[in-house]
Computed example of a mutant assay.
Amino acid sequence: MRQRIDALGIKGSVLVISKGKVLLDYASNNTTDTSYLINSVQKSMTAAMVMKLVQEGKLSLHERLARFYPAIPGAKKITIENLLAMTAGLQLKPGARLGRRHFVSDRDNLACDVKKTVFKPKMLGKWYYSSLNYVYLCGIMTQVTGQSYEQLFRATYVEPLQLKQTEFLWSKPGKIIASRLVPGMIYRGGRYDVVKHKKALQAAHDELGAGSVVMSNHDLAKVMNYILAGSLLSKKSRRELYRARPPAYYNGGFYNDASLGLKTANGAGEGYYTFMRSTKTAKTMIIIQANKTRKGEFAVLKDRIDKLIVELFAKKISSF
């Protein structure tokens, strides 16, 4: 198993859990408790937070976006369920980016995003990947609860699970240092250049709920277990949240492979990679994170990891 993972050439931290027990826990670069920016893997956590509100009767999957953001084009036709599955038909205007150039507040960023959002009626009900969906889900949760996304995240995951290497990228320097975050790096011109913290911080604010948290492998595994098999959600809630359709079988922040019973989440950006593969009960899980990246490398690595996982499951390797 280790040889197969090492052959991917990823320099970072690796955690493999098999049948509920740690099988491999090592680092080919950094340490086993290093934290990394998890980017889009955070969407699975945001989705579970939304589903928790649905479970508590504070929100409905069939609720219309217009209740919260009436100025968004097509809001009367779009549901919370559409946002979770990325089938809302929403996109940013050509050339636009999430957030404001100079961050003011989450609320201000959301107001800016509303002005830059377009609705494609023919895409309603069809899958189109965009973090915009999850940014709006964060705003909706804040309106429903009166708490910021960060407050909700800490109350949902950090505090009950006693996470030690989990922080928001904009946290105070002391907290970031305590989380053991390493800087993201991108290979350019024959060397790895460190991504400037200011640039990464801007992206983290823009990607609220979809790419603003740093975590170690062990903290990430705890959260995945809590979401997929713990007490956060009921079995009924999980069935509803992860109900997915082709072509991507995406819902609730995961790509859901029913044939193998796998949940897949990937994150890339600001010099970081995160790859997470788990069975639907979180009994078996692989997490690989790195802070040394190359342009065009992410898609290749993702495909190689997917093929490796499929092969391992198909052969039913005993050690896995």
Rank of each mutant, 00 (worst) to 15 (best):
K116E: 10
K116Y: 00
T117N: 00
T117L: 02
T117I: 07
T117C: 01
T117A: 02
V118I: 15
V118F: 08
V118K: 04
K120N: 14
K120M: 14
K120C: 12
K120P: 13
P121Y: 00
P121L: 08
P121C: 06
P121W: 00
K122A: 14
K122R: 12
M123A: 14
L124P: 01
L124Q: 06
L124C: 01
G125A: 14
G125K: 08
K126I: 06
K126C: 10
W127S: 15
W127D: 13
W127A: 15
W127H: 14
Y128H: 15
Y128L: 10
Y128M: 14
Y128I: 11
Y129K: 08
Y129L: 02
S130M: 05
S131H: 11
S131W: 02
S131N: 14
L132N: 05
L132C: 09
N133D: 06
N133I: 02
N133R: 05
N133A: 08
Y134P: 03
Y134I: 15
Y134G: 04
Y134K: 10
V135R: 04
V135D: 09
V135G: 09
V135S: 07
L137V: 03
L137H: 03
L137T: 05
C138T: 11
C138E: 07
C138D: 15
C138P: 11
G139V: 11
G139H: 09
I140V: 12
M141V: 11
M141W: 07
M141S: 05
M141L: 08
T142G: 15
T142N: 09
T142D: 14
Q143I: 09
Q143R: 12
Q143W: 11
V144G: 01
V144A: 03
T145V: 10
T145K: 05
G146I: 01
G146E: 02
G146C: 03
Q147N: 11
Q147K: 10
S148T: 13
S148R: 05
S148A: 06
S148E: 10
S148D: 07
Y149F: 08
Y149L: 08
Y149G: 07
Y149A: 10
E150Q: 11
E150P: 01
E150C: 02
Q151A: 13
Q151E: 09
L152P: 04
L152S: 09
L152T: 10
L152C: 06
L152M: 14
F153A: 01
F153D: 00
F153L: 05
F153K: 00
F153I: 04
R154F: 04
R154Q: 08
R154C: 11
A155C: 08
A155S: 15
T156F: 00
T156I: 00
T156G: 07
T156E: 11
Y157N: 02
Y157Q: 06
Y157D: 03
Y157R: 03
V158S: 02
V158H: 00
V158I: 01
V158K: 04
V158A: 01
E159R: 10
E159V: 14
E159F: 09
